[in-house]
């Protein structure tokens, strides 16, 4: 009755999820356009971007909460459209949102199985299989490297990082193949963030494709295999780890594109020979992966 599945061959396998030129517009407003990336089993795809970059829109498309208004969404190489988050979940794409969907006053094991409880007996004697659920909860958390003293304690007594990990372990146990984590480290301190990154690596090692949304390149780089950068609803590029360094990632995040456009703007007012413009252009030149790194393909 395990839903954990078998461990797929890592890395060279075909992507589980592949999106090409995907976008979403609300009437005349383009929230997201021309974004392409892929998620493979046993790899972490990081989605980086500042506030308002389109990260939420992007994960809502992946999670089935929004249907894309342009582009192609392939699951196992076949085009799909999800009608609801439930449909995405049934296809093995699970999303762990920032609020984690836990009930603070309920014990850890009840939270773990909430909505999908294991029962035994029939008719009026159908009851929760408490022993089995406690055992599975303990074992699953242990496999993620979380050693809880007591699965009977209210989940509200756990630290933010631990709660995040219970939510991840729950998604893994209930058969997720792709795990979408919405800013799991955003509200955490340095140490707690490290703990969560460790569990992301664990989930990856267990053969899951992980989509890790963050605005912190220092969190993304150590665990990521692929980096999708978003800015103002468009893609700044989709890089494999070998093609980009942490420094390049950071400066790209900090606005490489903005530097370039600033240089152009100043050029008009100050003239191309101005030392400030030349310096900015040189700076922008050093940014990686441009201009072929996934400029939006509109139309």
């Amino acid at each position: 009755m395990s839903a954990t599945g078998t461990r797929p061959a890592v890395s060279e396998a075909a992507p589980i999820v592949e999106v090409t030129g995907i976008g979403k517009s609300y009437g005349p407003v383009n929230a997201l356009s021309g974004v392409s990336t892929s998620v493979k089993a046993g790899e972490v795809t990081c989605v980086l971007g500042d506030n308002g970059a389109g990260k939420s829109t992007f994960i809502k498309i992946l999670a089935g909460a929004h249907s894309p208004s342009e582009g192609e969404f392939l699951l196992d190489g076949k085009p799909v459209t999800f009608s609801s988050p439930r449909a995405a979940l049934d296809a093995g794409i699970a999303t762990v949102y920032q609020d984690l969907a836990v009930i603070p006053l309920m014990p850890v094991w009840r939270n773990f199985f909430l909505g999908s409880e294991i029962t035994r007996g029939v008719g009026p004697f159908r009851r929760l299989d408490v022993g089995e659920m406690k055992k599975i909860t303990y074992t699953e958390l242990d496999n993620m490297g979380i050693d809880l003293r007591d699965v009977d304690q209210p989940i509200g007594t756990l630290s933010g990082g631990e709660r995040q990990c219970v939510a991840i372990a729950r998604a893994v146990y209930f058969g997720a193949r792709v795990l979408i984590l919405d800013e799991p480290t955003a509200a955490l301190g340095v140490k707690q963030s490290g703990v969560v990154l460790k569990y992301i690596a664990r989930a990856r090692d267990r053969g899951l494709g992980v989509v890790f949304i963050t605005h912190n390149p220092h969190h993304a780089y150590p665990v990521g295999d692929r980096f999708l950068l978003l800015n103002r609803g468009t893609s700044l590029g989709d890089f494999a780890k070998k093609d980009i360094t942490l420094d390049e990632l950071t400066s790209l995040m900090a606005g490489g594109a903005e530097l370039e456009s600033l240089a152009h703007e100043l050029e008009r007012t100050l003239g191309g020979s101005s030392p400030i413009v030349q310096q900015l252009e040189a700076e922008a030149e050093r940014q990686p992966g441009r201009p072929d790194g996934g400029r939006p393909r509109r139309g």
Binding site: M1, S2, T4, R7, E132, K135, T139, N143, D205
Partner: peptide, 17 residues
């Protein structure tokens, strides 16, 4: 319940008394 795919299999629950 099988956990054969997992590298490290958890210990039995240490339900504290």
């Amino acid at each position: 319940m099988t956990t054969t795919d997992i590298v490290t299999v958890g210990n039995r629950p240490r339900l504290e008394n």
